[in-house]
Structures are given as structure tokens and as C-alpha cells.
Design a binder for these strands. Sequence first.
DNA 1: CGCACACTTGAACCCCCTCAACCCAAGTGG
DNA 2: CCACTTGGGTTGAGGGGGTTCAAGTGTGCG
Lengths: 238, 238
Amino acid sequence: MFIQRIQSPGSTDLPGSTCQRCGARAQSVCCVLDEGDLGRLAAVAVHMEYARGQVFIQEGDVAQDFYNITHGTVKLYKLLPDGRQQVMGFSGIGYFLGLAASETYAFSAKAIEPVRLCRFSRKKLNGLMDNFPQLERRLLQTACNELAMAQEQMLLLGRKTARERVASFLMGRNRIAPMPGTIALPMTRTEIADYLGLTIETVSRTLTRFRTEGRLSMIPEGVMVLDLPGLEALAGGG
Amino acid sequence: MFIQRIQSPGSTDLPGSTCQRCGARAQSVCCVLDEGDLGRLAAVAVHMEYARGQVFIQEGDVAQDFYNITHGTVKLYKLLPDGRQQVMGFSGIGYFLGLAASETYAFSAKAIEPVRLCRFSRKKLNGLMDNFPQLERRLLQTACNELAMAQEQMLLLGRKTARERVASFLMGRNRIAPMPGTIALPMTRTEIADYLGLTIETVSRTLTRFRTEGRLSMIPEGVMVLDLPGLEALAGGG
DNA sequence: CGCACACTTGAACCCCCTCAACCCAAGTGG
DNA sequence: CCACTTGGGTTGAGGGGGTTCAAGTGTGCG
């Protein structure tokens, strides 16, 4: 449960330089800032690193910080009192965490791979937003995107069958895959099940059935798509 | 399917006056603007009225307008190709509709009661946001609230039982009820079912069972809560 | 080796869905 | 006035998709 603070080596610790050479910059909200303004962002950013399995946002805690993921994957989830879990999503590089209207976090966040991220204090970022309206507009866009994805997931959870859910999940992963057709699944079957509102057994059986139907093949890191049109049709509920 | 355009009578049609005396102002995003700025908002607003059953936003259509509800209730929903329906939410007075990152609407909207609303062109409102950053910040808050509610609904759809879903729905309605304990249900059982990821029969049976258990009593406009603690406990999944 | 963890597979069960009948109130039209 | 229709709601019987329970496989690791 201990938190490791990453300090840049002296020569690269000039103000702004860390943000300017950040690998996640192009994919994150930071991309709306130019080289000069990045310095002011870097001044309020703290680099963090978490090991696999670490929970770094706890539902209900006071929301003091925002996070921007630069490496790895996290899962966002909510729990019921008896332990039932619903995963809200899996977030990777460039993803902005912590958007919340209320004073407390609405969900927990756990690293499912080794994760590196930037942490910003809410207060300081609010100050930054006053000076950089394009940052605020970008966050509004981000929030709207999140909302659209959440609504798509509500359709899945409320009305799709198990086969349609698993197919939808795979097609969603395929859309963000660096090499389409080869889908990485860094999360466990349990986590997939908790994301899709199913049990681990149903997920496993459904994947097996997709395999025996020739729609995909299993590889160590995930799956390879063999029948893209078929899976897309299933995912769309057609 | 025809759309009625409401024109204010001459004497009240002064710029800004319509917004200043709007009953929904205090509950809507407009509340961040002062009396003077309201005039510029009123200049870009068009008052609309829709009868019960009218669909005024169609999923997939180009998103040219935002809407702000001043009277009545609308349901927001998505459809699968075969007709399966998922209701994303029921929106009442003061609610801001049309927040969308993409160029097209992500859901449809139907009036389930006679509805009056203000329509703003996206373009004009974007121009307004440049001048009134507090409006943009309020929209960001709104979007974050929506997101939190959507995530709570994902937990419901993915992990709660039928009883817990209906109880959660009733407690949610109770929270926004003008007289707590007396819950208005302007939507049909079918619409409740499509909101909760259930069938109409299950919703009906569950309500009947709550009644026989002495948890509520049915009234013409909705239900009256008799066992608030019990329903709250059920809703929370306890 | 032994343990933990992730995953798969089988069998039985159950919650909710499907199908169907029925009630009731509000039109509507002769 | 009654006959008929339509839409919303309730209730019952039966079936099925997914869960639950259980056993077994594979794999990484101290």
C-alpha cells in the first residue's frame, strides 16, 4: 500500500521539460497546451507509480486530485455492500481520471498493470483552467465522451445477451488496439465479467464458444479475431 | 409529428425578459448568468412545445441544438436494431439536453408528458461560452453529474436484482419528489422496465409484492412510501 | 514440491423472461 | 345506450439463459 514518488534525474527536471517529452501528451488533455504553457502544467504535476493490484482511488474518499495515465491500465469500479462489483471501465494511456462533480470520488481505481501517471491537485488545476479556457473545453469534451460511452454500456448491461456483451467488449477493445485484429486482454476473466454484468463462467464459456465457432483464436496476451464481420454483427445486436 | 413554435405575446417579448421570468431558471444552467447576460441568452433561445409521445431528438441525427426543459418530463433512450430499448433516464424541469461530444445525438428523446423547452443552436451557444466561461464551467459540472448518475445506473444494471432495481428506482424518484414519500410516476410500466433492464411483468410483480409486504401503497399518480428504511436498504443492495 | 491463482468445464438450479389470459378505463361510433 | 377497440396494467404457468456449485487443469513462484 506504499506509494512511490518518482523524481526525475536532475538534468531533465527543468520546468516543463517532463511534460514536453511525455509519451502520453498527444493522447491526453494536455495536447491543447502549447510548449510554453506546458511548463505551468508540469509545475503542478506529480509523477506517481503504482504496482499491479494497488488501489489508488477509493470510492467515497475526498476527491483532492486528478490523474492522467501515462503508462499501464487501470480499472474503475464500484462495490455493493456485500461485495458485488461493477467495473465502470478500463482506462489506459492518456486517460483523464477523477472528473467528479461531488466532493468525493464516485468510484475506486485499481492498477491492473504496473501504472505510471501524473497527479494534479484539484485546486491547482482549477486555477489553471481559469487561465487556459481551452483546457476546460477539452475537459468538457472528455466528459461528454465518457457520458456517451457510459450510455452505450447501459444499453449493453440492460438489454444485450451474454454473447452480444462479450462480442461488444471485444470489438471495443479492437477499436483501441494498436494492431487491429490482435486484442490484448490485460484484465482477468473476473474483471471482464464484472465489466459486462456476467459471471466468470459465462465469460469463459462464451469465449470458448466463439473459438469453437471459428470466430477467434486464443493467444497468451488475449485473442485474435478471425471473423470480424460476425463479431461486429453480434456486438451491434443484429 | 408537427412542431409548434411558441411566440411570446408582444408586450413580454423584450430581449431577456423571457429568460428572466423563466420558472426553470433557478434549476437550470442559466442560473449562472446575471440579469443583464440573460438577455444575450434569450436572444438565441427558441421556445418549443411538444405533445405527449412526440420524439424531438432522434439518435444518430446531426446534433444541431441543445435543449433546456422548462415543463414536463422526457425520456432519453437508445434502441437496438431489433427494437430492444434501453432508457438512459427521465429528465424533468431544468434539465439540459444534448451534451454530446460527437456530431450526432447518442440517444433519442421523447416527451412522456406535454413538454415545453428552450432550444439553443450549438453554434450560438458555443459563441456564448466564449464570452461566459462560468456557463462552460457549469456545463462541465452538469456533465460530471450525469456521468456519476450513469455510473450508478451501470452498477444497478450490471449487479442488482429485480427487487433492488425497483427499490433503487423508487428511492431515486423520491429524492427529487416535491413531497417526499409521495412518488409521481408519469412514465408507463414499460418505460420503467426499459430503464431498469427488466420486463414490464417483473416491474408489475415487484411493485405488487412491495405492496403486499406493506412497503408502499399505490395511488393514481404513482406510489406512496410506507417503509422508507426497508426500501432504502433494498436499494443500496444491503 | 506445494501453494495460489487464473481459467475451463460440467451439472443442477433459479430468477427472470416469455407467452397468454384477463381486468379496467377511456375513447369512438352507431 | 351499448358494442367494440385500444392502451396500460396485473396475474399465472412454463421455459430458458445465465448463475451457482463443484471438480479439474494449467502455470508461475517461493
